[in-house]
Simulated assay, not measured.
Amino acid sequence: MALDGAAELKLESGGTQLFSLYDINRLDPPEKEEIYRSLLPARLKQMLREWGGSVEVIAPNGLRFVRLQARRSPGDPDPVFFLELCDTHHGQMELCFCVIADPAAPRFDVDLDPQGRNNVFATMGRNLAEEERAMVAGLFPNQTRSGLRMFGEFLPLLELFTARLGMDLIMAEPLTYDNAIRYEKYGFDYLVGKRLMQEIDEGFQPGGVLYRRLDGSTPFRRPGMEKTVMGRSWAIHDGIMDEPWDGVRIYKSIGVHAGVNTFPGRESQVL
């Protein structure tokens, strides 16, 4: 299902319709950068103008891949907005990675091991002290800073962009439990992993296997954490399940909200 009006807003260059990131990446840099900058939310663009910020577009000719990085200041080590997209030969858009962070918020080095090396989303070792500080501050696993609450402004732009290329599906792989729940909120459904999400909800019910493991043995397994997305996500990040979090695949049909909710009894919380 295409968004209303998307058919009349086909992406074109010189009268030729564009059907993929590969097609866009073949264009001259000014033209393709203008196209990709359309993915930046208006509020973010205004903030970048006020800051004197910068936007970098990496879109190599010959590849089906793009990376956008926006920084408050060109010298800032962390981007405010970081986006990676790729597409498939089957006409699907892959949302590989999206981070929208508040550059003024405190930074928590959960992405670094105690020696200061990148830990690749904690797969190469966790920084437990920083993780606990981040959790106490209200952050979710793998978050280095609090966000700008802007994903809801970005997603419609991505849907329109995808529809204008003639595609009707956006695919993604949530890296954490809270990511999966957040994507549900924005209308995604599961290709793989819905049963796992339902089993997690069952396991955190009173008397369930995950509920019983919230025994206070670590700061990330405190009783009561089953009630919130944040609490569950930190417990899962801490290894409370029998298997590591992995392999969940989700999709969104353009213009369609799937209405999935695998944690219906959760306490209200900003995601």
Results as ranks from 00 to 15, higher is better:
residue 158 L to H: 01
residue 13 S to W: 11
residue 17 Q to K: 14
residue 189 D to A: 15
residue 57 V to R: 02
residue 115 Q to F: 13
residue 171 M to N: 13
residue 262 T to A: 06
residue 42 A to V: 12
residue 247 G to S: 09
residue 191 L to N: 05
residue 3 L to S: 07
residue 179 N to K: 02
residue 72 R to Q: 14
residue 195 R to K: 14
residue 55 V to K: 03
residue 56 E to L: 11
residue 158 L to P: 01
residue 48 L to H: 05
residue 20 S to Y: 02
residue 20 S to Q: 08
residue 33 E to S: 14
residue 136 V to M: 09
residue 209 V to I: 13
residue 130 E to I: 00
residue 242 D to T: 13
residue 53 G to K: 01
residue 99 V to A: 15
residue 154 F to V: 01
residue 152 G to A: 12
residue 64 R to C: 10
residue 268 S to G: 14
residue 162 T to Y: 03
residue 104 A to N: 12
residue 190 Y to C: 02
residue 144 T to V: 15
residue 81 F to P: 01
residue 97 F to V: 04
residue 165 L to G: 07
residue 119 N to T: 06
residue 181 I to L: 13
residue 109 D to L: 14
residue 89 H to I: 12
residue 104 A to L: 15
residue 150 M to C: 14
residue 131 E to K: 00
residue 258 A to S: 15
residue 153 E to H: 13
residue 107 R to Y: 12
residue 80 V to R: 00
residue 237 H to Q: 14
residue 219 P to K: 05
residue 255 G to C: 08
residue 173 E to M: 04
residue 264 P to Y: 03
residue 66 V to Y: 01
residue 240 I to L: 12
residue 190 Y to S: 02
residue 3 L to P: 05
residue 70 A to Y: 04
residue 268 S to R: 15
residue 220 F to D: 00
residue 247 G to E: 02
residue 228 T to S: 14
residue 39 L to K: 10
residue 115 Q to C: 11
residue 270 V to P: 04
residue 65 F to T: 02
residue 18 L to A: 03
residue 110 V to Y: 00
residue 147 G to T: 13
residue 239 G to M: 07
residue 57 V to M: 04
residue 269 Q to M: 13
residue 11 L to P: 01
residue 94 E to T: 07
residue 271 L to C: 07
residue 54 S to G: 04
residue 218 T to E: 05
residue 121 F to T: 00
residue 224 G to K: 10
residue 100 I to R: 00
residue 135 M to L: 13
residue 271 L to F: 08
residue 267 E to I: 12
residue 60 P to H: 06
residue 60 P to V: 05
residue 44 L to H: 06
residue 221 R to F: 03
residue 106 P to M: 08
residue 51 W to A: 15
residue 91 G to E: 02
residue 68 L to D: 03
residue 254 I to E: 07
residue 95 L to E: 04
residue 95 L to V: 05
residue 221 R to N: 08
residue 94 E to C: 13
residue 121 F to G: 00
residue 178 D to H: 11
residue 127 N to H: 15
residue 103 P to S: 09
residue 211 Y to K: 08
residue 67 R to C: 06
residue 236 I to W: 00
residue 18 L to W: 01
residue 205 Q to G: 10
residue 206 P to M: 07
residue 34 E to I: 07
residue 219 P to W: 05
residue 153 E to K: 11
residue 133 R to T: 02
residue 120 V to I: 11
residue 82 F to I: 01
residue 145 R to P: 03
residue 108 F to H: 12
residue 116 G to L: 03
residue 174 P to N: 03
residue 206 P to I: 04
residue 250 I to Y: 00
residue 71 R to W: 06
residue 214 L to W: 02
residue 167 M to K: 10
residue 167 M to Q: 14
residue 183 Y to K: 09
residue 171 M to W: 11
residue 126 R to G: 01
residue 165 L to T: 04
residue 160 L to E: 09
residue 235 A to G: 03
residue 247 G to T: 01
residue 9 L to T: 06
residue 256 V to Q: 10
residue 21 L to V: 05
residue 14 G to Y: 10
residue 112 L to E: 11
residue 181 I to K: 12
residue 120 V to W: 07
residue 90 H to T: 10
residue 69 Q to W: 03
residue 117 R to V: 08
residue 153 E to L: 12
residue 243 E to C: 06
residue 210 L to A: 08
residue 266 R to Y: 03
residue 210 L to F: 14
